[in-house]
Design a binder for these strands. Sequence first.
DNA 1: CTGCATTTGAGGTACGTACCTCAAACTTTC
DNA 2: GAAAGTTTGAGGTACGTACCTCAAATGCAG
Lengths: 348, 348
Amino acid sequence: MESKPSLKVRATLEDVALDAQVSLATADRVVNQRPGVRAATVAKVHAAIRRLGYRPDPAAARLARAHPRQVAFLLPAGSNRFVGLLSEQIEANAEWMRDQRIESEVLSVDVFNPAELAKALLAQKGRRDAVVVMALDHPVVRSAIDLLTQAGTIVITLVSDVPSSIRQHYVGIDNTAAGRTAATLIGRFVGKRPSKVAVLLGSLSLRDHAERYFGFNQVMAQEHPHLVVLQPVEGQDDPARNEALTTQLLRAHPDLAAIYSAGAGNGGISAALRAAGRALETVFVGHELTPDSRADLLHGTMDAVINQDAGHEIRSALRLALAHWSKGPVLADQERIRIDIYLKDNLP
Amino acid sequence: MESKPSLKVRATLEDVALDAQVSLATADRVVNQRPGVRAATVAKVHAAIRRLGYRPDPAAARLARAHPRQVAFLLPAGSNRFVGLLSEQIEANAEWMRDQRIESEVLSVDVFNPAELAKALLAQKGRRDAVVVMALDHPVVRSAIDLLTQAGTIVITLVSDVPSSIRQHYVGIDNTAAGRTAATLIGRFVGKRPSKVAVLLGSLSLRDHAERYFGFNQVMAQEHPHLVVLQPVEGQDDPARNEALTTQLLRAHPDLAAIYSAGAGNGGISAALRAAGRALETVFVGHELTPDSRADLLHGTMDAVINQDAGHEIRSALRLALAHWSKGPVLADQERIRIDIYLKDNLP
DNA sequence: CTGCATTTGAGGTACGTACCTCAAACTTTC
DNA sequence: GAAAGTTTGAGGTACGTACCTCAAATGCAG
């Protein structure tokens, strides 16, 4: 009973050619943007594509493609734990990437040096189909990103955005909102007693840290005016420095009720809190779930961890690139990176 | 300079056949479990598969497959908001499913009737490659699931598990942990003043609600002994009933500091709180982010919403099925459904 | 050893795209 | 209107699997 010519579930390129009254070869030339097709013909084909809702079958495309897509990840050099998580996740998705015919390489760059980052970006021109970069926002970097994009490479910023550039996507959380979230948690955990709150961060010149601090202050000022937010101190994301700074803060402010760490290197803060015997009574909220922060949550030193899922970010970046290439749909709420709140009770 | 015979990135079935010293046809018979192959030969081929790490190329498989995979979703009938979200998400993933050659159908079932659910499950036997079901835990249902599984259909439980069955996967959160999380939030938001906490839920005979209540009590008893948890009241997930119950509770307990709603129908609780003029001072934590609960968070009526991402659950269920069919890898931490905590500040 | 059933091999088609070549048809230009 | 260029069509191959058929080889029972 295979009666009807089985209405096609999906239009093929041949259908498009037929509908546009051109040959398969010409339709193919249009779709793959190969030269030698008159503008009028291009228009005819595009019209047919729209009429039929044609989209290349990604499975067939993957099979037929001669060379795999080349993707580079540009990550900060150094021993930052979160960056380590990102690398791990790239590794963890290797098999999936192979299935998608994506070949990737991770490049370590000194992100704090804009010139070098820009150089590394430009070095990818023509060699990569996509570049995923954890960048800092600086004019030199911005222009390198713009050049790369114009050369046809799709550029995706990761974790920290360069909003003025013409990158295709930003994959990461809204850091202002993350800061606001931290403020609400601290405000509500501390309660109504008037007291002081300290803020530690890597550097105010890092876009994400600055944005978090901004959001934090907003909510603190508006909703928890009985809490005094001290001047933020910069620890360069370095545990040792953070430890010293925290010790100092605890000594200077016996009525310090809470600490918000907007950057990395939380281990140092925990150590200082424990050394001072104030680990449990002081509310401590920080970012990024790592083995250390996990332990600190369970122990009670940390009260909440705000996290962005590294694996999700890596997969999201790759999916966005794929969607771009296959002209496929983007599921906005799948690609939105959540501001995860972890307490000791909902740890994964 | 295409010198080397380009070491294959991926072993093909032909490589396997060669390695096992059988023909492509035989290798194919083994992989697709077609009959008429001697046990010894099967073993030879399997050995070769393991040696070469062969896995069918999913893109090629999808292209070649004659019939799409048939998937049925069995969801509770009725107007539950969260179930509506699930349906929406199934719809939202339609195009992606088409790409994967998955055909799906949503069937509404009266989930509170075990016999009917079991019947609906068994009706899928032989007609579906996979069944995703939001079930209730009951012996009749369990045995239907087991029968389906044995018939070769892959069964995935959604949101609420049937742990004694031999279903392939459970996609949903750890409800005990979710209850614990609610308790910690309430405990910390209320602070140190002794007071009372009410618990509302749909029914204690629903596995997920019961588990949440269990986890909630655990943490309350251990960590917040100054808070008295009242006997839980059952509102059948019905807003109207919840409203009446809440009004009653508020009247009976002027020192009620917090409400934990482990089920659905939170709208009624909010209404009662507002009517009593205690919306802001009473801590109210509930489940599932919907337009209503979102508004309640922003307004301050609700203080936190614990959520499981419906879209993630749908995609996860489908990905697990696909991974099963293509013998692909399962990324455990991609498929783990998070216990999301939403405050007014980190809403998506 | 014969006859029969079972197992295996050989070969094919189809899926939809990417990417290639070559000839035919069409424009443009002087 | 002829020569030179540009645009189009026709046809092919390859990707790796699913799924099919038919003949040849093999094993086993009597």
